[in-house]
Nucleic acid binder design. Structure first.
Lengths: 202, 202
DNA sequence: ACTCGACTTGATCGATTAGTCAAATTGTGA
DNA sequence: TCACAATTTGACTAATCGATCAAGTCGAGT
């Protein structure tokens, strides 16, 4: 029953608290208390609160594939279905939190209005890593989506829709705006595939 | 050269600062200083900082049509073009702020993780007021969009895309993600209209 | 046994925070 | 002219913030 090393424990706690309350509403003392860690010990590992944020964002980035993508895609092969399975993970997060917890990266991205370049870059890296995964799906489904199809642009659009949908679900405290956005996105893919099928015939 | 009443001046200043720095990063002292207003005077009008936020959100709500919609739609009659003219306003806000200022309501909606019910309701009201305007456009264009077209759902989708696009533009400090999202939305409307035109023929 | 660096303890710091208050001033109607 | 309420002034408070620091503990290597 050995516990996680202090530095990792601090990151784990901060990751949770930043997601639940946001960066600014989480005090360093909060993180210390919930990590059973004293002030000097905290500052031994993280010179400033922002350094903790950087570590959290790095962990998020490295967790995208093993903690988010792989669980979402287990048992699902169709590339388009994988995209909607990923969106379903966010729906689940919203559901179990009663529409208070959505995408922590998106929340941080809008909460921090003038982030240091390092922070902003890591936020962007998280988005890019997410988009990369969706792009791979779309490349896998390219044949069904038509010739002029832009996989990268569409992958970015999927992130756009997810983030906007999470925002509305949280603001309305209601899953329906999220479901409506996903349904519209589904419809968009359907029309693309129908158009591609017609194109194939001609 | 009489100046704005103190209460209005405080709201005007707070509206700007909340948009530039966010709610939590704006101190009551900041608002007081930039409004030439002393502490006691501030608390005469607003018992708490949150009451100031409520007043700001009410002003935003009442400003949607006269300050945002009407300028965006001046000289534009086509309902679909009005939607993209509205999105172009947000693009302009991003551009002149070098991708730091997008939609203040969206920022507040994600910054405030557990807002008081009054605050959350006003954020939702702002979204609803925005969606109402887009819905009117879509109802005006219903004939070109097909029979089963859901104007309300699609209006919400436009907000979803706008908010997600603003988030990415701010995070990447680059207008291209915004433009890409708007282009994809445009493409979506195009496919809807083409499908409706085919439906018309049949 | 000794050393050294990594880590922990916990008191403490100055700055900033939202908010209070009593006294002074101002504008308005009788 | 008086009265009275609305507003303004600015000092003040208690709490919290991120961060500092010196002293102490611990374990691994020699």
């Amino acid at each position: 029953m050995q516990q996680e090393p202090t530095r990792d424990r601090l990151i784990t706690t901060a990751l949770r608290l930043f997601g639940e309350k946001g960066y600014q509403s989480t005090s360093v003392a909060d993180v210390q208390r919930e990590s059973d860690c004293h002030s000097g010990s905290f500052y031994h590992f993280f010179p400033t609160k922002q350094d903790l944020l950087l570590a959290v964002l790095e962990r998020y980035r490295s967790a995208i594939v093993p903690m988010l993508i792989e669980p979402a895609w287990a048992g699902i092969d169709d590339p388009i279905e994988r995209i909607f399975a990923l969106l379903a993970r966010y729906r689940m997060l919203l559901e179990i939190s009663h529409c208070t917890y959505g995408c922590p990266i998106g929340s941080l991205a809008l909460e921090l209005h003038e982030p240091d370049p390092e922070v902003r870059q890591l936020l962007a890296d998280n988005f890019t890593g997410w988009i990369d995964q969706v792009e791979n799906c779309l490349i896998g489904a390219r044949k069904t989506l038509g010739r002029g199809f832009d996989a990268r642009r569409t992958a970015g659009f999927v992130l756009t829709v997810m983030e906007g949908a999470v925002m509305q679900a949280r603001t309305y405290r209601d899953l329906r705006p999220f479901d409506a956005a996903v349904a519209t996105l589904r419809e968009y893919f359907n029309t693309l595939q129908r158009a591609a099928a017609r194109e194939e015939l001609a």
